[in-house]
Amino acid sequence: MSYELWVILTGALVASSCSFIGCWLILRRMAMLGDAISHTALPGIVIAFLISHSLDSWAMLIGAAVFGLLTTFLVQTLHQSGVQSDAAIGVTFTSLFAVGVVLVSVYARDVHIDLAHVLYGEIAYVPWNQLVVGGVELGPRAVWMVGGTFLLSLAVIGLLYKEFKITSFDPALAAALGLPVTLLHYILMTLVSMTTVSAFESVGAILVVAMLIVPGATAYLLTDRLGIMLGMSCIIGIVTAVIGYYAAVLLNASIAGAMTTTAGTLFLLAFLFSPSHGVVMKWRAKRRLAN
């Protein structure tokens, strides 16, 4: 496979795995929690590095997932002790992020983590970091990481689809039916942090946040069915990755930035022209009624 294909494949995998999990965040009104988790992965990565002394992806994945859960737990605890939820998210993620930045600065000589790199990421470097098993190059490490977590979240959500659906739309009913609402919340948040982190390393936080939210929001404007929304958001994510890559090549600009901008443009199109929820369509329907 060529260099170009690997980059597009990575982008498409990141886009579809993030938007698949992001749909649930949008429906549960927890989109900003996804943003928070993608930021608090930083201290997780740094601490994992300080403990394991290696840049091994799996140690980082575990460290960041632990911090993702810690974020969820702290937000939940603060919220239960009377802090409104937006402020609880704000306090938690900024404080943990500050801890991460301080740790990077203090151990600057030992930690080879470039802050700018973590935040923007550089998807263009992905194909050069190959996974080698027994001397055979099996493709970029990032593809395996992101693909693996995508398969995991597909499997978990596939198994618990009904349960996730009911807790997302009507948590009170789910609790009355005896479903473990809190446990499901934490399972989802574990998946969010694993997805975030596996993608984060290769493409940067900002593309992860964009892919968590934007394709799902676009799909949300195009359909009223959960299953279709999930599938559609993945397709939108893949389309975004392909268009974004070629736009970046054309403009000679950052690939992650171009993908994000493409996602925003697609959302704008859906916002204006969605057959059921678009602004223009609603306006036309209103005018037709008036005549």
Binding site: G34, I206, A248, A256, A263
Partner: peptide, 13 residues
């Protein structure tokens, strides 16, 4: 989240 990430992404371009 949408506005935040799209604006920032455009800024990076």
């Amino acid at each position: 989240g949408l506005v935040l990430s799209v604006f920032f992404g455009f800024g990076i371009v």
